[in-house]
Amino acid sequence: MNIFRLAGDLSHLAAIIVLLLKIWKTRSCAGISGKSQILFALVFTTRYLDLFTNFISPYNTVMKMIYLGCAYATVYLIYMKFKATYDGNHDTFRAEFLVVPVGGLAFLVNHEFSPLEILWTFSIYLESVAILPQLFMISKTGEAETITTHYLFALGMYRALYLINWIWRYYFENFFDLIAIVAGCVQTILYCDFFYLYITKVLQGKKLSLPA
């Protein structure tokens, strides 16, 4: 474990908690893409199948359970408890256009052709594009609540910090996972546009609104 990976995990945890609290406190999921949240729940489910069979550390197990629990709780709040506030008209990104190609790629490009490893690879590829429905929704509505932009910033920073973690592990642990690195680069690049808006607008106290 290094400081960059820990910072990344804490940033990821913060994002997940901020989103869950936002929906719970405001009793509304307006502006939140339910499709992205379903994709994240799928990412954690396919990545953490070895939760009970492959013990890494108490930290690893606890964090995986928190991620899984929060992901499903968020999906539940969006599609059941606060369904009336779900903005389905703007959450129209065709998620199947992500899941199918990612599924095919996971079969073709992986470290080992075994069920667990293919599902892990699927989760890595899917995570890199899972935020697209959310970013697409914001571009359609033309704006985002400030709390939602903080959620997205923390979520985007988590994988950016992981990129630094992989550089660190390459030099100090001789660890190198090309699949995770390439997917992590794609994932972080998708946030660049948002990062620019977040830093130039939200951090200046303005509301994030896109030129519609």
Binding site: R5, D9, H12, R47, D50, N54, I56, N60, M63, K64, Y67, H111, E112, E117, W120, Y162, N165, F175, D177, A180
Partner: peptide, 10 residues
């Protein structure tokens, strides 16, 4: 190589 498949990251 085994390290690689023993994914220790979240």
């Amino acid at each position: 190589r085994q390290l690689m498949l023993n994914h220790d990251e979240l």
